[in-house]
Design a binder for these strands. Structure first.
Lengths: 345, 345
DNA sequence: GTTAGCACTCGAAAGGGATGAGTGCTAACA
DNA sequence: TGTTAGCACTCATCCCTTTCGAGTGCTAAC
């Protein structure tokens, strides 16, 4: 038996690939006849049957019941994604579609993010999610405080890449507008060129050392700003697409999926965890959220100015068109990176 | 026949009420026996049958087929909402629930809105939507421009109520930070005390008259600000609740509803249109969006400082628990109004 | 005007083949 | 030794029929 990837001989791999491909398209158990016809290997159904029997024993296939075909196990999807998938390229039509629907003239980050999510969801027909650029990882250029009412102000942070974000923070009461302006300048000066998340550790002690009396108030404000800014925000689009797939024809299951997606906490967590790998795939029970264990989540990162600044991805049934999803995500990652790189400088 | 509301005698009204009440709870056609038992009118099923037959002829009831019970028509719901509904009050438990889940310490408007939407959706088990306070109807107190990059700046508008909002706008290129600061002050001075939406009409001509050369640029910026600010934003929560109702057990129908809700444009339109009536109810085909014609939408307005500043509501199946929804919305309207009134000054 | 009685309707649920896709095994073939 | 044809067997699905019962409408009596 000629080994390959230390797992299966080539013929078994090809058969498994054919089965997964077919199952992804039809959602129906695949029989030996179908495989024999579709995979142009010139093998009879009987031979395929023997191989399928082996694959079942090895844990790559499952049988809903004796007289049905086989469906891929999670292990099969894993193998499929790692080794045997046609890593599809987008057709010209698809690339055109994206170009047409990504309006590069838009100049607001949140708008670009929304569009991106929309396009991913439309192209894949799954649920897409795009994290807005990670803020506290960017270098601060300017911080402006705008008095709003006694005790509160709006802090607007501008980074060197031009991304801005704002949040309400508490400020000491009884500050005159001039004091506030001074504070703005002071904080800007202290944070300039630092990343927000690092600043809290590196700059705060400095400030405490340098400035005497007001230090505490200033430090608290900076911490407050950092806290508000590091809230990750995720745009989720196309949740209802899940209803197109027969595995979610059961209302209770669909409901569970949609509720989980609406709260978004798990998706947010996945995006955050995947922020340092170019592409990640979580299949079924590889998700540690029990509500999502018959879903798969694929993520990619995107960059601006050469640095990863965010993650985006797709959630759908485990029977997902991984090839297409990964192709779309790759394409969108570079599109978005390009747009943001231009936009943010 | 003793007339009432110029439409139906009292007995018919009570019977209709019993039918609607029952149908709202069970979603199953209501038979004469049930009505006879549940409405304590001491009438036999046969009598009820005669009345129901009349009500059918009058267009208040419909018969799915001969041997089923009756279900209320839209006309019946309309009558029910207008005249015969028990305008339920919340139980103490419910009021407690709301108090517990509305964290009054939160000091960010968008957070309050999100909570409100969450609570409405949880209490009614329908889909809730809450419009963030209408911005351009508030009086401007200060406008700050923060340079972001060549040609663009972030405009932050603070109103006299303390609500703030910000948006990226285009600015003339080649402005120094000092110029921008001057512009901030100029615009603040011009807009101070005016409502944004009125300012465009009343203040712009003034500016054009007073300032010579730079007028065009300034006016454009103000218009740009107004445009960005008047975008209404709606928080929608609990869309997946719809899957709990048997009328949406059909995946295609559910999908249609969810897609419509996700885009949100119709809901946004309804909220906007209803911003001047304390409470509005749109039943079924009273919605002009064909996709929503078997839904009902109930809205209420909320205030701050005595003025309407926003609308919120609930979407659900026409067979909706109008009594409860309206009670919850009323309660939430006054809660939110109170919180915002405090929060915004 | 109200009610009991009764025949009638018709959807929903339950039962019961027939169908056919698919399997596993065996025996023959190259 | 690997491949294949043949065949008996399995079992979900489809479709048809029957049964069941909730509910109606009508009539006649109270």
């Amino acid at each position: 038996m000629s080994e390959n990837k230390g797992l299966l001989d080539i013929r078994k791999m090809r058969i498994l690939q054919a089965i997964v491909d077919d199952y992804i398209m039809t959602a129906a158990p695949v029989g030996s006849r179908t495989v024999s016809k579709r995979s142009d290997m010139g093998l009879s159904p009987a031979t395929i049957r023997n191989e399928m029997s082996d694959l079942t024993e090895l844990g790559f296939l499952e049988q809903p019941h004796t007289s049905a075909g086989r469906i891929p196990s999670e292990k099969a999807y894993r193998l499929y994604v790692n080794h045997l998938m046609d890593s599809a390229k987008l057709t010209d039509d698809e690339a055109d579609y994206i170009k047409k629907h990504l309006d590069t003239r838009v100049h607001e980050v949140s708008e670009v993010i929304r569009q991106t999510a929309r396009v991913i969801s439309d192209m894949t027909n799954y649920t897409s999610m795009v994290m807005v650029p990670q803020f506290s990882a960017l270098k601060v250029k300017r911080v402006t405080l705008i008095p709003v009412s006694e005790g509160s102000a709006m802090a607007v942070v501008v980074t060197n890449t031009g991304v801005t974000k704002n949040a309400m923070i508490r400020i000491p009461e009884a500050l005159s507008p001039e004091d506030i302006e001074k504070l703005s300048k002071l904080i800007t000066q202290k944070l300039d060129g630092h990343k927000l998340n690092e600043a809290v550790e590196s700059v705060l002690p400095q400030i405490r050392a340098e400035i005497g009396e007001q230090a505490d108030a200033v430090c608290e404000m900076i911490e407050d700003i950092e806290r508000s800014m590091s809230e990750t925000n995720v745009e989720v689009v196309g949740a209802s697409n899940i209803l197109d797939y027969p595995e979610y024809s059961d209302a209770a299951k669909a409901r569970q999926f949609l509720t989980e997606v609406e709260t978004g906490s798990y998706l947010q967590k996945v995006l955050a965890e995947s922020s340092d790998v170019e592409m990640s795939v979580r299949i079924g029970t590889e998700n540690d959220n029990p509500e999502m264990q018959d879903c798969s989540v694929v993520t990619v990162t995107y960059k601006a100015g050469g640095k990863n600044i965010g993650t985006m991805g797709v959630v759908g049934p485990t029977r997902m068109d991984y090839g297409k999803v990964m192709a779309v995500l790759k394409y969108m990652s570079s599109s978005l990176s390009e747009i943001l790189s231009k936009l943010l400088k």
